[in-house]
């Protein structure tokens, strides 16, 4: 038995040696970055692989920040060609890229994503002002002109129009781009309406950002991980809770959860596209120009992404929940993609 076993082992190792081909030049596009853009990026990648003779690109979901880190490690086969982002590239990231020799980066805006606050259909639809959101979730808030640790326990303490229910919000963790955008758009949007905060902004910009962006840690805000399906499930189980996540999850689950109205407008496709809904952001991807022409298919991938088939009104990306650009914006982005105009 053991002699045979030895033979089998030798056999297996021979097979595996034959499996190692000599490392060839990469012929597959590699994409990293935001988990929000991931569903759209993968849909395009799949269609691109199906309809062209190129290999299907490999798409990794690393988060926007993680994506830039990988993207900026340098130029060459071992580094990704494209990074997805649910926020614009920061100047510090451009510097990091430049330091590692990544000079020409092409920015492509692909559309919008609304960040929705939603609750179970069994409960009443909520109607928030941005102020309410900040008062409910910030670590320190303004009460009677003074800045104090957040004292609010129920929604109606903040705004009598809101229900008398415990504040219980499920949302993304700090590593998430969605959390960054939520803090910037919803929390800061509500925070800066207070004159006391405006006064602080004039004196101390850092304190202002900390006050507006820091979320309370006393259990009212529950970090639910990056898995938005999990939040949807928890909302169904607990009609008192409110969840924070991307619009595409609301769209897919609109039979069980409902989006809350923010500043008078509901998170619908039209409202986000028309920019009436306040808590929405742009989605991007960034292309390493030095790789175009070296790694086959990058240009063709761009044109697939920006085609009417994908981005148009009946395109498959709209079906997946991407809120498309207006036709003028799209025309502009197409010119950028065509000429590969780098960021300045």
């Amino acid at each position: 038995m053991f002699k045979n076993l030895n033979k089998t082992l030798v056999g297996i190792s021979l097979i595996s040696v034959s499996l190692i081909n000599a490392a060839e030049a990469r012929d597959q596009i590699r994409i990293v970055g935001s988990s929000t853009v991931f569903p759209f990026s993968t849909a395009v990648a799949e269609e691109f692989g199906r309809s062209t003779s190129f290999k299907t690109p490999v798409v990794e979901s690393t988060g926007s920040g993680g994506g830039f880190k990988l993207f900026c490690t340098g130029v060459g086969e071992a580094t990704p060609d494209i990074t997805n982002a649910s926020r614009a590239i920061k100047s510090s990231e451009i510097d990091l890229c430049a330091k590692n020799g990544v000079k020409d980066i092409v920015e492509i805006t692909i559309g919008y994503d609304g960040i929705v606050l939603a609750n179970s259909k069994e409960a009443k639809q909520m109607n928030f002002k941005l102020q309410d959101i900040w008062l409910a979730l910030a670590k320190d808030v303004v009460v009677d002109g003074k800045i104090v640790p957040n004292p609010y326990k129920t929604w109606n303490e903040i705004n009598p129009d809101l229900p008398n229910r415990k504040i219980e919000v499920l949302g993304p963790p700090p590593t998430s781009g969605t959390r960054d955008a939520f803090a910037e758009l919803a929390l800061e949007g509500g925070c800066k309406t207070f004159p006391e905060i405006e006064a602080i902004k004039a004196q101390d910009e850092n304190r202002y950002t900390a006050l507006c962006h820091t979320i309370r840690e006393d259990g009212a805000y529950i970090e639910a991980g990056e898995n938005d399906n999990l939040i949807v499930g928890k909302l169904q189980a607990n009609p008192n809770a409110v969840g924070v996540f991307g619009y595409s999850f609301l769209e897919e689950n609109s039979d069980v959860i409902q989006g809350s109205i923010v500043e008078g407008s509901a998170p619908t496709f039209e409202n986000i596209a028309d920019k009436v809904y306040k808590v929405s952001r742009s989605l991007f991807f960034y292309v390493k120009k030095a790789h175009v022409g070296v790694i086959p298919g990058i240009k063709e991938y761009l044109s697939e992404f920006l085609s009417d088939k994908a981005m148009g009104d009946f395109g498959y990306l709209a079906e997946k929940g991407l809120i498309p650009l207006t036709s003028e914006e799209l025309a502009k982005v197409r010119v950028t993609a065509e000429n590969l105009t780098p960021l300045k």
């Binding site: 595996s16 799949e46 299907t56 490999v58 990794e60 979901s61």
Partner: peptide, 17 residues
């Protein structure tokens, strides 16, 4: 190490994604 990714093609060798 990047194996959590959207990969459609079946790997043909241990060097492919």
């Amino acid at each position: 190490i990047g194996m959590v990714a959207f990969i459609v093609d079946t790997p043909g060798s241990i060097m492919e994604a």
